[in-house]
Design a protein around this nucleic acid. Structure first.
Lengths: 213, 213
DNA sequence: AATCATTTAGGGTTTTATACTGAGTACCCC
DNA sequence: GGGGTACTCAGTATAAAACCCTAAATGATT
């Protein structure tokens, strides 16, 4: 008998899945939690083999719940149950120790299979999820390149840039930072080069795009 | 016997709710659809009293499905079933003829009550939903004010603004749009006033903030 | 018919920004 | 101690933008 805890703030969903699993003879739903903060207390008084854990919870995030559970109850396995097929969610969840990740738009059979597999010590992921991850790995390099392209701005330049974005003139910036007008112009010039901009418009765009302000 | 059709792209959820309702003697789930485009064909060959309709569907939106259903089968009643407790969704759904709106995080009892009430010709809304609507009505005026604060930019001004954001000088803009430099300067001045900006930086910020480009 | 916003354009002035070159100080790292 | 980078400031010059004014043609709205 595989003892399962369902953690999902959507009562209707939790109830539904619970009934879904009730038909399975080898699976027993021993509890349901609608809040992340209820999970740890529940586990302390009830034996559970597997947690079906929703990522988006109203109080504590599913990631956090997973981390705590894995810390306190290492033998307990977590299957993430999510609406979102996004690589970032999946990887984060796996880093927190989840053994499976299935989407809510998969059918009952796949859910049951996931529970059985994870209970047997294996991993289980929805086909869509694995595809997403593979795509993500393939495009990871682009992401890194994008990260590299983030310009390195010195502290002073950042200050100047911030004031530029806030619609201040060079003279005003010089006054605020107690600098010579020429110095501000100098910083501005290097910013134009570093951010590959032609003028103020480009500086502002870059600043906002790279969240440098 | 109340015949119910469940429309939700999350198979697991649909299956769960179906089982949830299977215990109710007066309710019969006659079908499940995972795509909006499957609803109309299904209704043409199967008798249904009430549709539990998810708003977010992968192909046709729940709003569109609701509209079509109400058009073709006026006697059929729709209960919107959504994760999102947002006034905009609720009002749109009601405008499309839905008779009820309940959240997925409500329990089984409320779902059953909603089905019975709507079947009896009444309306039914989750408590949270009605609260949201009331709050929305109260803050409607602020929303209007916010809408008013969105600057009204003329076509030409929008073109000029777009080129400004793309780091073009006034002379370049004049050349591209076949205008006099003075005309471009004129537009730029009015843009400064309309967008309440001091200089190019302000124009770019406003343009990006209000998605005017 | 009259009003209003838009689009167009000019003349003139002042303020800002950009370009280019050069240079002294300071700090960190090897 | 030398090499690199950041920070500071200067002069000269041009380009661009901002601010002041006016004003005519158009089109929509009332």
């Amino acid at each position: 008998m595989i003892r399962v805890l369902i953690v999902d703030d959507h009562t209707m969903f939790a109830d539904g899945v619970s009934l879904l699993l009730a038909n399975e003879t080898q699976i027993e739903v021993t509890g349901k939690c609608t809040l992340g903060s209820h999970v740890m207390p529940f586990l302390q008084r009830t034996a559970v083999d597997i947690i079906l854990l929703d990522i988006s919870l109203p109080d504590v995030s599913g990631l956090e719940v997973c981390r705590r559970v894995r810390e306190e109850f290492p033998r307990l396995n977590v299957i993430a149950l999510s609406m979102f097929n996004q690589a970032s969610y999946v990887t984060e969840m796996l880093q927190q120790g989840a053994k499976g990740y299935i989407l809510k738009n998969t059918g009952k059979d796949e859910l049951v299979r996931a529970i059985e597999r994870v209970y047997a010590g294996e991993e289980f992921f929805s086909r869509e999820v694995t595809e997403t991850i593979m795509r993500d790995l393939m495009t990871r390099k682009e992401a890194e390149n994008r990260a590299k392209s983030i310009p390195k701005i010195s502290r002073r330049e950042q200050e100047v840039l911030s004031l530029i974005v806030n619609e201040h003139t060079n003279q005003e910036i010089a006054d605020v930072l107690c600098l010579s007008l020429k110095t501000v112009e100098s910083h501005r010039s290097t910013l134009l080069v570093k951010l590959n901009a032609r003028n103020t418009a480009g500086l502002v765009k870059s600043a906002l795009a790279h969240a440098l302000v």
